[in-house]
């Protein structure tokens, strides 16, 4: 049970993340969890397991990891350079990870947060109801070289699957609803906000990120004397000098700067994943439209498995082609006996 993966090296922002710890808002603790929860759902679909299992979130840079036992892995979120024992692996896909094989994950190609999932999920260490590291609150810590990340027993499932996903890793247009202080901004300030193409600043983390307006900042007359009030992830807070900050999963729970709008939860991964310099635009929608969008997104998450397809691989790049075919044959012969030992089942 204590076997898992050995961390040979890790970038500075590698942490275990699940869906976070709701329920502590009144004690001042934000939910946290994966910066891009959609990536958790995608990893779960690829491996055929629950989407509330912890995965390894890699901010900007991955690391080098060795499996201590035969594993299945999936890679989702921001695409990163990745090899397994020197062979390139497809992103948004599931793969075998044989014991002793070295997985090397480099920098992001686009986006901000990539995710490494293992069949069965990482064990983690639950605190206040979740395994997620919440570094701004002092819960957990970043993964470091020398760590062994224990993996729960894998009940089996497919590998060699790919999950096509829409690009959410280069900024774009996101929907917002009005927030607690939207009406305090003059109509022309709101219009200027929604007609501006912002750039994501280099300053940003899991708590929130700064937007660079191409022209001046945004202001209300009473901007600095608003009473502190609840903050939710997605809120766009205008600080005293007029700069917008979009608050993310690990944000503060209250704030006194005015909020001009709130990003829809289903669009928030586009903001969280936007790399420095990426364009971001905001569009107001009514609450009804926002709720409908959330409903549609939830439905799409629940049917992700329908979008899975066999990972197309060039046979010339598969050094152990014979063993793949052999395993397929064995699996086919076992069909009558149900799902036992489906762990090695592979589609290609």
């Amino acid at each position: 049970m204590s076997e898992g993966i050995k961390v040979l090296s890790a970038g500075p922002g590698v942490t275990l993340q699940d869906r976070g710890r709701p329920g502590w808002l009144n004690a001042g603790l934000s939910r946290g969890g994966a910066a891009d929860p959609q990536a958790l759902s995608e990893g779960a679909a690829l491996l055929g397991h629950s989407d509330d299992l912890p995965a390894l979130e890699m901010a900007g840079m991955g690391g080098a990891f060795v499996a201590q036992t035969d594993l299945r892995l999936a890679l989702t979120g921001a695409p990163m350079q990745v090899t397994l024992d020197g062979e390139r692996l497809a992103w948004n896909a599931s793969h075998h990870w044989p014991a002793g094989a070295r997985l090397s994950v480099g920098g992001t190609v686009s986006g901000g947060y990539g995710y490494l999932h293992v069949g069965g999920g990482f064990m983690g260490h639950a605190q206040l109801g979740a395994c997620s590291a919440h570094l701004s609150a002092g819960i957990g810590r970043a993964v470091q070289a020398g760590d062994v990340l224990a993996v729960r027993r894998d009940l089996g499932g497919p590998v060699g699957l790919a999950l096509p996903v829409d690009d959410r890793f280069n900024g774009g247009s996101v929907r917002i609803v009005e927030s607690l202080q939207t009406h305090l901004f003059a109509q022309n300030e709101r219009e200027r906000f929604t007609t501006t193409t912002f750039r994501r600043d280099t300053r940003g983390n899991r708590m929130g990120l700064r937007l660079v307006p191409p022209e001046g900042g945004f202001h209300i007359d009473s901007g600095r004397t608003i009473l502190s009030e609840v903050i939710v992830p997605g809120d766009i807070q205008i600080t005293g000098d007029g700069t917008p900050f979009v608050l993310l999963c690990e944000c503060q729970t209250t704030g006194g700067y005015p909020r001009i709008g709130t990003v829809l939860p289903c669009d928030l991964p586009i903001v969280a994943q936007a790399p420095a310099g990426a364009p971001l635009r905001f569009r107001f929608v009514e609450l009804d439209e926002a709720t409908a969008a959330e409903r549609k997104a939830a439905s799409a998450r629940q049917t992700l498995v329908k979008r899975l397809r066999p990972l197309i691989r060039d046979p010339h790049t598969i050094p152990d082609l014979l063993s793949y075919q052999l395993i397929s044959g064995v699996t086919a012969g076992d069909d009558d006996t149900g799902e036992k030992e489906d762990k090695d089942g592979t589609v290609n």
Binding site: P22, G23, L25, N26, L227, E229, V230, T291, R295
Partner: peptide, 20 residues
């Protein structure tokens, strides 16, 4: 989930369950 701030009470709801 609920919380209170200085002069306000907050309710976090499931928008797919709750009719506003």
């Amino acid at each position: 989930e609920t919380s209170s701030s200085l002069v306000s009470t907050f309710l976090r709801v499931d928008p797919l369950v709750v009719d506003h």
